[in-house]
Design a protein around this nucleic acid. Sequence first.
DNA 1: GCGCAATGGTTGACACGTCAACTATTGCTG
DNA 2: CAGCAATAGTTGACGTGTCAACCATTGCGC
Lengths: 134, 134
Amino acid sequence: MLGLIRTTDLIRRTFGRVVEGQGITLQQYNVLRILRGAGDAGLPTLEIGSRMIEESPGITRLIDRLEAKGWVRRERCPHDRRQVLCWINPAGLAMLDALDEPMAEADDRALSMLSADDKSHLIRLLDAIRAGSR
Amino acid sequence: MLGLIRTTDLIRRTFGRVVEGQGITLQQYNVLRILRGAGDAGLPTLEIGSRMIEESPGITRLIDRLEAKGWVRRERCPHDRRQVLCWINPAGLAMLDALDEPMAEADDRALSMLSADDKSHLIRLLDAIRAGSR
DNA sequence: GCGCAATGGTTGACACGTCAACTATTGCTG
DNA sequence: CAGCAATAGTTGACGTGTCAACCATTGCGC
């Protein structure tokens, strides 16, 4: 239990330090990654939220900040005017690209001490915990 | 990586929900547990922080709130007037006691899907990650 | 077509976590 | 013993998570 929390905090900080070089936080990075994956179609606000682990109010403000920094564009959807679609813009894409390499390295380093077997076992155990904590 | 973060978030919320019945957060609960363990000797602020995973400013304010709710007493240490000692008081102890049982149950439930072997394996893997992320 | 519940978001308020800057003490060093 | 670095803690500012309350828009049922 405690080990889980401590380990995750450590990991989060490690990756946070990688992205902060670009003046961004880990959560903001995650949102941008999701938007990059969505491509030209864009994504409604809550859809982004559901791909993270967060409640909507957090998402709204997260995107407020990304928009203020000029990495994201938002527009009310014409078909369903309740929705607000979000896109990553070129500046955001460029910034993400600059992080791809360092993030991949950090990823390697973070789990380099585990064998492939260890990793898949870890994943199975974590999945089991989540499946059981319904 | 992602599994680690998702699982921990889930766990944190699960335990958070248990303690919120007493009008307390998980972090506040952790501080009180540490203070209960310290007994009559009390603990200096930063010592509490080092047993959690947090930087000092967070601790100061965490304890501000605990003191405001009447669960903790603070006093400047006479021997080293830089330090501020903290003690849990009777009201805090009573509140903690009320949580012992539900927390133990939640603990059982949270990991009930894992065998003893699985648990020790998980702990080993997590320890390995922390040891390697130096 | 009207009424109303459901859906999609936003705002306000509060608890954290973290960084940087600052105060108060200690205690070492010359 | 004067001076200064190290230690203990606090304050300010900002990003993030979460709850509750709220507004706008849709779309279903009658």
